[in-house]
Design a protein around this nucleic acid. Structure first.
Length: 429
RNA sequence: GGAGAGAUGGUCGAGUUGGUUUAAGGCACCGGUCUUGAAAACCGGCGUAGGGGCGACCCUACCCUGGGUUCGAAUCCCAGUCUCUCCGCCA
């Protein structure tokens, strides 16, 4: 949510910012509405003040046996007039709200204008694997090594689902263990949140009302407009953890991480080359999250990116770090960096982590503040999130990048203590 | 799922036969006096949001949420949410 006062006072700056994500906005109408809101508020409050004054006189006059019928009539007129103005005022407020709540965040100053084609690779890690044989794709490898059962996944869950089997499940779980261990080392608090969330959670995160169709809605009761949904990312749960709270400045930054599967409709985004585990309706992810003061959020984003990079580096994979252009950042985010892993069979890099600074955008929607010690004032804090990491694309990357000529897979060193072996080989039957 | 009780400012808690309570009071917290220092005592301050005024200030709203009755609602009515106790069911 953008601040109406920021829009009023720095209109051109806001317009220029949104233009970077190819979003054109005309604020003249909403500013006019806000003027109207102020005028109506003033009028309504004056009437209420008058009402309160007369209302205090009535019991006194009654006590003195005076006639109050004239006052009652006067009050009736004031009450009717107030009601009229209140209705108009509520309509104006609603219209302002509806306009503001669908505006995207303003990109940070150092974020490039344009769409995905303007994304910039910041750095590249590891060496692109070269094979002296014809490498297989992860679908083939996972099937021959019995890591994943695609057929039965579709049978029991429908299109877009798979089943981790045997050693495949163990590797997937080892990745999660590795990430959990690293986050604990860095002093992040581990949370396991509900997977079913209320509408308010989606609103605060910025998914609702505009992007409702991306999630699986669970319950939609008639005439209530109230929906529970299955979370598309743990971020949605974590940003709501402190919703409607005022934190102490000294307890910031708050650093959390959570493990949840992520459930997404991915309606219409299926592409033929994305078979296997590149895009499903459910994938595992560990999410990092921070609540910080505004002045510390840039540094916090650097920290999150660095953590994600270190996790990838620890696995020994070839990947790159990209800075997204304004138009490719999601709705709620001011700045985003993606970590993309090399998938040899596809010849492209696919996102395994997205690290973003939402600044005060989500905090405004969720009314999340902190008390500034020096001034005693409440201010909106900044929220940041980063995957750390999404495992379901890492497993295919490991399988493809670390495959050997005989069809076996070399297991990354850091995972071996959970898997109990250093190679995955074809089982003789 | 059934029955009952409840929800008031950071916390505890009064007010709930509608109007002289402008939400009392205690605690916590902050500042001051006193003290070598501390404690105690005393004095003062102490919520959030919106609006008006150059300003000292002033006004409005908020007693779980949303409606309603009334000239007037923390208080009455309706709907909902949540919490607690008991019963049932159940990892």
């Amino acid at each position: 949510m953008l601040d109406i006062n920021r829009i009023r006072e720095n209109t051109d700056e806001v317009i220029r910012g949104l233009a970077k994500r190819n979003f054109t906005a005309d604020f003249s109408h909403v500013i006019m509405l806000d003027d109207k809101r102020k005028a109506l508020t003033f009028e309504s409050e004056n009437l209420k003040a008058q009402k309160n004054k007369v209302s205090a006189d009535i019991p006194m006059k009654k006590k003195n046996q005076e006639d109050v019928s004239e006052l009652l009539a006067e009050m009736k007129v004031i009450a009717d007039k107030t009601k009229e103005i209140e209705i108009e005022l509520n309509n104006v407020k609603k219209e302002i709200q509806e306009f503001l709540e669908v505006l995207p965040n303003i990109p940070a100053d150092d974020v490039q204008q344009g769409g995905p084609e303007e994304n910039k690779v910041v750095s590249v890690y590891g060496k692109k694997p070269e094979f002296s044989f014809v490498p297989k794709d992860h679908v083939t490898l996972c099937e021959t090594l019995n890591l994943i059962d695609y057929k039965r996944g579709v049978k029991i869950g429908g299109n877009g689902f798979w089943v981790y089997t045997g050693i495949g499940a163990i590797v997937e779980w080892a990745l999660l263990n590795y990430f959990v261990e690293e986050h604990l080392k860095d002093g992040y608090e581990f949370l396991l949140p509900p997977h079913i969330l209320t509408y308010e959670c989606g609103y605060t995160a910025g998914q609702f009302p505009k992007f409702q169709d991306d999630v699986f809605k669970l319950k939609e009761e008639e005439n209530k407009g109230y929906t529970q949904f299955i979370l598309p990312t743990a971020e949605t749960a974590l940003v709501n953890y402190h919703r409607d709270e005022i934190l102490k400045e000294e307890e910031l930054p708050k650093k959390y991480f959570a493990y949840t599967p992520c459930y997404r409709k991915e309606a219409g985004s299926y592409r033929a080359e994305e078979r296997g585990m590149i895009r499903g309706h459910q994938f595992n992810k560990i999410e990092m999250f921070q609540y910080t003061t505004p002045e510390n959020s840039d540094a916090a984003l650097d920290e999150l990116v660095d953590k994600a990079v270190r996790l990838m580096d620890g696995l020994g994979l070839h990947f790159r770090l990209s800075k997204l252009a304004a138009g490719d950042c999601s709705h709620s985010m001011a700045k985003t960096l993606d970590i993309e892993v090399w998938i040899p069979s596809m010849g492209i890099y696919k996102e395994v982590s997205s690290a973003s600074n939402a600044k005060d955008y989500q905090a405004r929607r969720g009314n999340i503040r902190f008390k500034r010690e020096q001034s005693g004032k409440n201010e909106y804090l900044h929220t940041l999130n980063a995957s750390g990491l999404a495992t379901s694309r890492i497993l295919p990357a490991i399988v493809e990048q670390f495959q050997n000529e005989d069809g076996s897979i070399t297991i990354p060193e850091v995972l071996r203590k959970w898997i109990g072996k250093d190679m995955i080989k074809i089982e003789k039957k």
